[in-house]
Write a protein that binds this DNA or RNA. Structure first.
Lengths: 353, 353
DNA sequence: TTGAAAGCGCTAACAC
DNA sequence: GTGTTAGCGCTTTCAA
């Protein structure tokens, strides 16, 4: 393999502009103590030569690598990927994060780590040592993993905790779970439903509780009972089927169900079909997350959109702001989720008990 | 911001093992000229201290950055991403490539560049200068962009060309388009179809021609006519609708249609529904790519799976092999595509003319 | 406000 | 087979 072609370095720019390396460095990094005229001259040389700093060299001397690490759960991510059921979490994260990174001259690197495993620490340490990222984005269920958060804190690496209230010292971001569940429930109430069932998510995820609480808040505010209307699920299709079965068996008068994710909502839809219940006439269904799968369901599903891209994008901004020593928001940053109305919700055909 | 915590460097390992830096370096890189016993001793120090080389430092001195760049078309990728229709190309690329990279200690970085734009060169140069990647993965429509391929050649960076026959000096990989189209057509012929329509893809993509040729080859081999059975599409849903309309108007006796991608196949399905044609009884449909959208169609669509993950994975392997000076395959590497049988294909109800 | 010198962690080239 | 030296491209520190 021939040697890499000689690239334009800071030296070439310095020579071209007739200044010291240091002055060029100051211009690149937008530092103070450069006269406008000098800055202008250097910038012209940079443009003329098409100079771009090497991030490897920048990292070697300085404190920035211009790399942000996005961590996801290995098992779950690979599973979704293999299944090809249309879960686009990673896709949305990548693009939301990547585009924002690009604005600031950063790059996003994805890494998978095992959650239920003592390798976490070793894996994360290795990634940190190899890449020395300027920041890390944690997603559930890693967001509140003390092993991870304390390791990052010890290394002084700013990190975002998506779907976390912020225990652990990172930058917490929440995808509007509570409000979205509340509004979705309210939407059903406005349509005339009063017996509204809820299928919860896995208790391993904090957001499961928030979603449940949002449903409950809306029900309480409307003075509607919730007893026996909540059923435990774990985000899998199977658990959705089981939960929906129990729910409908116990409460024949249920006219609407809010499921804590798309898979469980799709399972509910299928069960309704099997039981001869028309959707939405006999049963309204709202799903959480709005992955592409629910778009193609029959009928297309009314869903709460999980703003994964917007949240990742915001996480990148906050990490970079933190790096720059800027003031960060006090509490968790809440990125609002929206309700997308489609065909799986309508006024109830029968009046519920 | 406090200074980054002191990390374990090659010096610590050298001191711990009582050898020179160079010997440690040799062990890390699995080079020759280290006695097994010495290698063992150094390895123990590495393990004990939890040493991981800094890729920034490795890049600074050596010739490897352990970074591979995956390039996609900006416009198309952002469009798909925003649409959230379930195109999982990026997702499959990322995971297929990332996991393979991880096996070799590499990382994959995604970058979007404009195709129809004189910025291509500037953008790519910037990415190369900043990251100095060890390899680049090109996807259509970049794969045969001379501006890009010549730039990479000039920089001596090995690059994979997915969906290309290899003009430009890179490593060509093909996702079995020709054979897959042939086999899918054959499958329809075996079912008893003889009037089999084909909707082509955009001529901007070489693979469009391969897919068309595969259909034609199967038809020819079976002695079936193809006149008037091919209609031009451009991969959009709209073009699929138009093409299917023409096809069915001109050939009422068509009993099966093979569409060059999923969106056009879905458009064909919808048109069939509007015209009161039952699928698959009156019209069999096979789609190309097998993105998640076709899974949820009614009926679920028989599709040719595009092996994006496997191809990206292979691309990474070949790039790394090339870096190591290993012998590469002669012609294009063909990653076979498979036919996934679902509900949109069956024996024709009527006998075609 | 600018420049010179030192050094980040590692590998290439060469000496032993 | 192993160690020494020089230097990658940049920023930090300190001097001017």
């Amino acid at each position: 393999m021939a040697r890499r072609r000689k690239a334009v370095t800071i030296k070439h720019v310095a020579a071209d502009a007739g200044v010291s390396l240091q002055t060029v460095s100051r211009v690149i990094n937008n530092e103070a103590n450069v006269r406008p005229q000098m800055r202008e001259r250097v910038q012209q040389s940079i443009d003329r030569l098409g100079y771009i700093p090497s991030i490897a060299a920048q990292r070697m001397s300085g404190s920035r690598s211009y790399l942000i690490l996005a961590l996801n759960d290995r098992e779950r991510t690979i599973e979704d990927w293999r299944a090809r059921q249309g879960s686009d979490w990673v896709d949305q994260m990548l693009l939301g994060g990547m585009l924002k990174c690009a604005e600031y001259g950063y790059r996003l690197i994805f890494e998978l780590v095992d959650t239920h495993n003592d390798h976490v620490e070793r894996e994360l340490k290795a990634a940190i040592a190899a890449l020395q990222p300027d920041g890390v984005i944690l997603t559930p269920p890693h967001s509140d993993n003390r092993l991870i958060t304390s390791l990052l804190s010890a290394h002084n690496i700013p990190f975002a905790q998506i779907g976390s209230e912020g225990a652990g010292g990172g930058i917490p971001l929440i995808m509007g779970d509570h409000d979205a569940a509340r509004l979705a429930t309210q939407h059903l109430i406005d349509l005339g439903h009063s017996r509204i069932g809820f299928i919860t998510g896995s208790s391993e995820y904090l957001l499961s509780d928030w979603r449940t609480a949002g449903w409950q808040a809306a029900m309480d505010a409307a003075g509607l009972p919730v007893d026996g209307l909540s059923e435990q699920g774990d985000f899998t299709y199977q658990s959705g089927t089981a939960a929906a079965e129990h729910l409908l068996d116990r409460n024949p008068c249920v006219t609407a169900i809010l499921a804590s994710n798309d898979q469980m909502a799709l399972a509910t839809l299928e069960l309704a079909r099997q039981r001869g219940l028309r959707v939405p006439e006999d049963l309204s269904i709202i799903s959480f997350d709005n992955t592409p799968a629910v778009l193609h369901a029959q009928p297309p599903m009314t869903a709460i959109d999980q703003p994964v891209a917007a949240t990742t994008s915001r996480a990148v901004e906050l990490i970079i702001a933190s790096k720059r020593g800027e003031q960060l928001p006090d509490g968790p940053t809440i990125v609002p989720a929206q309700l997308i109305e489609r065909g799986s919700t309508a006024r109830p055909a029968k009046v519920s008990a």
